[in-house]
Design a protein around this nucleic acid. Sequence first.
DNA 1: CAAGAAAAACATGTATACAATAAAACAAAA
DNA 2: TTTTGTTTTATTGTATACATGTTTTTCTTG
Lengths: 210, 210
Amino acid sequence: MKFDVGDKQSLTAQVYKQLRNDILEGRYETGTFLVETKLAEELGVSRTPIREALKQLELEDLVISIPNRGVTVQGISKPDIDDIFTIRHLLEGQAAYWAAQRINQEQMDQLTETIALMDMYTTKNDAGNLARLDSQFHDTIFAASNCRTLKHILTSLHQNVQRARRSSLSIPERTHKSTEEHHAIFEAIQAHDAQRAKELMEAHIMNVKK
Amino acid sequence: MKFDVGDKQSLTAQVYKQLRNDILEGRYETGTFLVETKLAEELGVSRTPIREALKQLELEDLVISIPNRGVTVQGISKPDIDDIFTIRHLLEGQAAYWAAQRINQEQMDQLTETIALMDMYTTKNDAGNLARLDSQFHDTIFAASNCRTLKHILTSLHQNVQRARRSSLSIPERTHKSTEEHHAIFEAIQAHDAQRAKELMEAHIMNVKK
DNA sequence: CAAGAAAAACATGTATACAATAAAACAAAA
DNA sequence: TTTTGTTTTATTGTATACATGTTTTTCTTG
């Protein structure tokens, strides 16, 4: 698998995405050593982008670095995912709370648009586009919470459980229910009812978990 | 300010600590460009450790990287700190909850020891050692929660508000109160009373905030 | 044959050289 | 004077060479 310099993204970013995906897909056994020179050769780039990508993965806790020894993959297990849902339920609830208080007009417009498109694709049963809009909906709320730290943590967590969320949305019944829940959250934010937005969001996350 | 190769830590780690501290101390104006070559010269190392340190800071959201342009410092403002306390109150509450359920003997022994030392230094009014033990107490609970993600997020947040916590512990009245609260949390964990541990921890964090 | 020391192999940590890109300065034309 | 296109310069992105430390192998010695 060779990487192309023609791609607009930096090599580091491409390597990062590739490795991250491979780890989350479980393509590496836990504990495997990721050797820089080997990866560099395999991916057709120098060690530099590899090192930088590994640094990022380390900060996200997907690999562990042992000084002067190398990095080993940590992966992400089933109970890990359960725990992450619990954490997300707390944090996304808070994000919705703050969003209801702090959202600006532009973000409100964005949410309105996302919700409208969700309705459309729900009737069409288009799971692919719904997954995209789902991410967009949550991302906008993170942004509207106006808390860099929260936005940062949640964006990272969101990606980690992406696969789980995808599979949830592929169940037609869940699709409709999910859109309804998004509607309710949207209305609570529009009404600046922070407490209600929080509770609805918490319930929503726990439903996705199931 | 020159760095020493004799230090056991890697240059990257030293540079990271230095830059992080400078940013948190507010030594750089928000928006300042951190130019790799300039920093490299100032700190007496090559660009490589600088780059790696900046990558880490970017992942912690203390600087923003603009591709092909450079990184600008973000710093951390007063309202940011308030928000971080709110987030910590949620997450540390959950950590205490899980710790009460999942703690092992070794970690329990560690907590027992920390609490005993806290008592001693409280009577001696030794703020420096109390700050250290405070960190240790919370870190042990993160570890006992047995959730990598949570441990990871909280360790990072903990450092960000370290200054605020230090100043809180320098108030003698607060010192005694804080030790009492630690005691109560410790007992709840020892009794494996998850709900109570959570509530006590939440209250504790909010008290520190004030 | 076993144990330990020396050395080779190998990996990461760091420095530096080169390439690509974006901003700034400048010149020319309308 | 303003605008547009070109050149220069500064800075990041990437590759590579070298230094340092760790593991494994090999060889020596009892």
